[in-house]
């Protein structure tokens, strides 16, 4: 027997079977879906959500020229503001932390702009890393 008629028969049978299978599966899907048709929830005009955000690292950035304090999105901030005067009052311990952060972040500062940071509370600097479990008060 020739090969082509055999292959043709196989393809024909496969196509017909797939047709029947697909239509049957679709009907079954519709029946199942029809059984679990929930009512759409009514949504109120205003909803409340809870926003849990880690505390900012205690190393704060100060810009004394205009009193604007940048948020954590410092790259965006740098584009908008060009600070001219800064206060330097950093302990040795904090300087190491700052240096480490700056090298880690690899943020390239524009040449004409500069950024100096000051710690508010040196003892709290361990809060930067939150590797442990969350403790609720």
């Amino acid at each position: 027997m020739e090969l082509i008629p055999i292959l043709s028969t196989i393809i024909l049978v496969a196509t017909i079977s797939t047709f029947i299978l697909a239509v049957g599966a679709y009907i079954l899907f519709k029946i199942r879906e029809g059984k679990v048709q929930p009512q759409p929830p009514t949504k109120p005009a205003n909803l409340n959500a809870e926003y849990i955000v880690p505390k900012e690292p205690k190393i704060k950035k100060f810009f004394l020229d205009d009193g604007v304090q940048p948020n954590h999105k410092n790259t965006m901030f740098k584009e908008r503001y060009n600070p001219v005067a800064v206060k330097e009052n950093i302990s040795e311990q904090d300087q190491d932390v700052i240096q480490e952060m700056q090298t880690e972040q690899k943020i390239e500062l524009p040449k004409q702009k500069f950024l100096v940071v000051q710690t508010l509370n040196a003892s709290d600097k361990t809060d930067e890393s939150n590797a442990g479990e969350i403790k609720w008060r």
């Binding site: 759409p40 009514t42 949504k43 109120p44 005009a45 205003n46 909803l47 409340n48 959500a49 809870e50 926003y51 849990i52 955000v53 880690p54 505390k55 809060d127 939150n130 969350i134 403790k135 609720w136 008060r137």
Partner: peptide, 22 residues
């Protein structure tokens, strides 16, 4: 409102989307 030593928890309000289907 501070709820945790390491995290802050805030309550935010946003508008629910209207059901457009009539």
């Amino acid at each position: 409102m501070c709820v945790n030593e390491k995290n802050d928890k805030f309550l935010i309000s946003f508008s629910g989307e209207k059901q457009t289907e009539s």
